[in-house]
Design a protein around this nucleic acid. Structure first.
Length: 230
DNA sequence: CCCTGATTCGC
DNA sequence: GCGAATCAGG
């Protein structure tokens, strides 16, 4: 197989969409994961969370880097599934600070049920103007992706007018609708909130205000062993 | 071991 | 330019 313009285009778009080299190679067919990576680099596409860190030669008296705020970023979920990223507060906006630990000892005497705090819904505004979901109105994260590759992500009748993987570019919302492998899997396709991979509306889903730990519900168990089919 | 991407180097 | 081999982190 050779690198035709179409194949290069597919590679480029899938790479930019965050697909792994393996997935891209699988999609293209006839090439190995290494071939994809090699090509991607030759194309100038590069950098993307790599497991291997660039070795800083200047690691002499390297000060033990202070990390006061590790940035509350939810760890990356399965590829393609929109990351529900906890708001990494960049501006001055609502800050939910709750001193946890030591929940106080007043629990021995349950006098009255704590009255439900009738608070108005507070939403923080993210850059670009999207409204973050407030804690409490947050919805459970998207269901895990089903087995992928049930169907080629290519042309099909019902995909008419849909934004497919190959339609992605910097200007349109990459919020996935459905799951990879499903017949009608496609992307939002709206104009992006400048500087973000999603439109304003989907930014509101992707970047959410943090919920205090103690009020957080543990993630629901995955219906089946989880993604990844093989 | 599995996965990942980066890099090297013979072709 | 290509990609297998190799490396190294998670």
């Amino acid at each position: 197989m050779s690198w035709t313009d179409e194949r290069i285009d597919t590679l480029r778009k899938m790479w930019e969409a965050g697909q792994t080299a393996s997935q891209i190679a699988e999609e293209l067919g006839g090439v190995s994961r290494n071939a994809v990576i090699g090509k991607a680099h030759r194309l100038g596409l590069q950098s993307r969370p790599s497991p291997v860190k660039p070795n800083e030669p200047d690691a002499k008296a390297a000060a033990p880097e202070p990390k006061p705020t590790p940035a509350p970023i939810a760890k990356a979920p399965e590829r393609i599934v929109p990351p529900v990223i906890v708001a990494s507060v960049t501006e001055v906006e609502i800050e939910i600070e709750i001193v946890e630990e030591e929940v106080d000892e007043s629990e021995t005497e349950v006098v009255a049920a704590p009255p439900p705090p009738p608070q108005p819904i507070m939403r923080s505004v993210g850059p670009g103007g999207f409204l973050r979901q407030a804690p409490g109105e947050q919805q459970a994260p998207i269901t895990p992706a089903p087995p992928r590759r049930l169907v080629p992500a290519k042309p099909s009748p019902e995909m008419a007018g849909k934004t497919t993987l190959l339609d992605l570019n910097d200007k349109i919302c990459k919020w996935p609708l459905g799951h990879p492998g499903e017949p009608d899997f496609h992307f939002c396709g709206e104009k992006v909130n400048p500087g973000f991979p999603y439109c304003v509306a989907h930014c509101g889903h992707a970047y959410q205000a943090q919920l205090p730990r103690r009020d957080r519900r543990p993630p629901p168990p995955l219906p089946f062993g989880g993604p990844r089919v093989r």
